[in-house]
Amino acid sequence: MFALLLLALLLAACARAPAAVTFHDSGYPEHLSDWGLYAREGERLVGRQGVVAFAPVTPLFSDYALKWRTMWTPAGMPARWTPTDAFDFPVGTIVAKTFYYPRSGDAVAIGKAPPLSATLDTRGMRLIETRLLVRRAEGWVAIPYVWNEDGSDATLARTGAEVPLTLAPAGMRFTYTVPNQNQCAGCHAQDNRTRALSPIGLKARHLDHNGQIAMLERAGYLAGVPASRPAANVDWSDERKPLAARARAYLDINCSHCHAERGPARTSGLWLDAATEDPRVLGLCKPPVAAGRGTGDRPFDVVPGHPDRSILAYRLESTDPGAMMPELGRALAHREGVALVARYIADLKGACEPLVPRT
């Protein structure tokens, strides 16, 4: 009887999962497998035909999660190159980001990203969630899925989820939060004028490394790439690169989707995208627009030579929901990232005039 039941469940699963990538132009399919992005081959997830992997040179921090990023676009419909914004992808594009952790070993010390491969080896790994960003006729739509315990499939989680985790042997215990569908706009609505969602990592400055731009061109996924291109961001962890370039790349990917000229946090006057050069707009000796506990009782966003007096460093190291930055996507402080930004601030030259008390 049990064998018959198991067979029925397996047949139902096979009937549900399409044999090729399937774009859904409306609605919210109940399972990740309904999109047909991956085939399960033993303990490997294998991207189906047309699925390619990508990785930004400096990734956004998400509680030390490892991330596998893939995309798929309709055949013969490449994205168009843009110099600063996300590439202009066609309707039918599916961008996926899978978050996962080792079941044993130090998750903090393990590599920051898997190889640029359309296959993910899940041996010894716990899959947590896969977030889809789907380009429909009305624009980009975010759809979150949470993996079941055995990693056989992921289920729609529009209201989000909470997953208690321990990073062993580091021993850090925390609750990993899968954002609900509305919260995705907190990062992906990068233009405050339109509030339309768009990808964060699929920009020239993040992807122009390890031959990824050429790979996307060969795959027919990207067109209009100029022969001469602006310098790309650097790997934040590469100590061979200049300290300032590493810190700016880290702040760009983690902060500039809000803190930029058109971003939701533009009124703060603190813009942290790679193109900003004005020291004042980068926070040097700039008092905060809004006071409160988010300042940590520090006078300026950035005090050259003094990370311990800089609001930027305080908010990156805080885990207080009312003070920490970014506001979403993490429960832990990124120790290595905080240390990098602190070194960057400590290396800055100059001095700030003390604030004059109001009378």
Rank of each mutant, 00 (worst) to 15 (best):
L251T: 02
L251D: 10
G269H: 08
K286W: 06
L282F: 02
L282M: 08
P299Q: 03
P299V: 09
V225S: 01
P226Y: 04
A249P: 07
C255H: 12
L272S: 04
E261F: 08
D308R: 15
W271P: 01
C255F: 09
R309W: 04
D308C: 12
P304R: 11
Y250I: 09
E261C: 07
W236A: 15
S310K: 14
G224L: 10
P304Q: 07
R266V: 10
N254D: 08
S310T: 10
D278M: 06
R262V: 14
L284F: 11
D235H: 12
R280F: 12
S256Q: 10
I253K: 09
V289E: 15
W236C: 12
V302W: 05
V281F: 00
P307N: 11
N254V: 03
V225Q: 01
S237T: 02
A244G: 04
D301R: 12
G305Y: 00
R293V: 08
A274C: 07
R266N: 14
A223H: 02
A290G: 10
L216K: 00
D235P: 11
A247G: 11
V303M: 08
A214Q: 13
R248N: 06
A244R: 02
A214C: 07
Y314E: 06
N233R: 07
C258V: 00
A223M: 08
S310R: 14
A232I: 07
C258W: 00
C258L: 05
P287D: 08
H306F: 03
R280A: 08
P226N: 07
A274G: 09
K286F: 10
D235R: 15
A232Q: 05
C255T: 13
K286V: 02
L216A: 10
R240Y: 07
A227D: 15
R309S: 07
R248Q: 09
D273P: 02
A249S: 15
D278R: 06
D308Y: 14
R293M: 13
L222W: 00
A232Y: 01
G269T: 11
P226K: 00
N254S: 07
H257V: 08
E217V: 11
S268A: 13
G296M: 00
R280I: 11
D238F: 04
A231F: 00
R248Y: 02
L243D: 13
V303C: 00
V281M: 06
L272H: 02
Y314R: 14
A219E: 10
E277N: 04
L312T: 13
L282R: 15
L243A: 10
R298P: 04
L216Q: 03
S228H: 06
R248S: 04
R246C: 12
G283H: 05
P288H: 06
D252M: 00
N233H: 06
G292T: 06
P230A: 11
A214I: 03
A214F: 00
G224S: 07
A275N: 14
A227I: 13
P299M: 04
P230K: 01
C258T: 08
L284T: 15
R248F: 00
R293P: 12
L251N: 05
V234H: 05
H257S: 15
S237P: 00
P242G: 13
G305H: 02
